[in-house]
Amino acid sequence: MKWGDSMKPWFNIDCITEQVDRLKSDMREVWEQHVYWTRLTVNSIAFNLPDLDANTARLLRNATDMGNLLKPFYGNQIAAKFASLIRAHLVIAAELVQAAKAGNQRAAADAERRWYANGEEIAEFLSRINPFISRREFQEMFFEHLALTKKEAVLILQQNFKASIEVFDKIEAEALEMSDTITFAIVKQFPRKFRR
């Protein structure tokens, strides 16, 4: 899926109900927060800012928030598993930035390897719980998210802030693509929950 195409799947839904619109808005909000708090945490790590602990705590809360959106459809166990996978994604990202900042190439390479393995697991998990999510397509999107986030972090560490913002704009657009992909798949899987 290309950036800017996120509205196309919605034309296939007969009727956008208030429940569909609410889920779409809530899902977009947590994915927006995901990338915003990631950027703030990267900045805090890069420049030894005193808000690092507070930003990290808020970033990690995002994993719980994402899991909570799945609860009404999949139950507590699946929601908790998804939250755990997203939390691992966030923790590994912080490890990668810290290793890159320290110039520890071995630790950075190890974190990046685990980061991509976690991305594979996230795509596999979502495709397993929802037949309308393609493992391959979601993994492609998620890997692009990882590549862009790494690029953004490197640019921040290099203090190339203008370029990092340009990359962040792409990260934000793609996060909304992933958000809409999940929402659309849930609506397709549970149509009775979204009837008027």
Rank of each mutant, 00 (worst) to 15 (best):
P131W: 04
T183L: 05
K8F: 10
K81T: 13
N118E: 10
R39I: 02
K71D: 07
E174F: 12
A94M: 14
L49R: 14
I78M: 03
Y74W: 10
E124A: 15
E140I: 05
G4C: 03
F190T: 04
E95A: 08
M141G: 15
D21L: 10
D65V: 01
R114A: 08
P72Q: 04
E18V: 06
F143W: 14
L40M: 11
F142A: 10
M66Q: 14
P72S: 00
L40K: 10
M27I: 12
K2R: 12
T56N: 04
V187G: 01
N76M: 04
I122T: 10
Y74I: 06
M27Y: 01
G119S: 15
A54N: 05
K162G: 04
D180A: 01
V167H: 04
E172M: 06
N55Y: 03
F161L: 14
K151R: 14
F194Y: 02
I78V: 15
E18K: 11
C15A: 06
W115M: 09
A63P: 04
E120H: 15
R136T: 13
F161Q: 06
L59R: 09
A46C: 09
V91Y: 02
V20D: 01
Q159K: 14
K150S: 03
A63K: 01
L126S: 06
L40S: 05
D169Q: 14
E144Y: 02
N43F: 11
I133C: 08
F82D: 02
N104A: 11
A83P: 00
P131K: 07
E172N: 06
L148I: 02
L70Q: 03
F143L: 08
G119N: 07
A63N: 02
N55F: 01
M141D: 15
L52H: 10
M66Y: 00
A100F: 06
K150C: 01
S134I: 07
N12H: 08
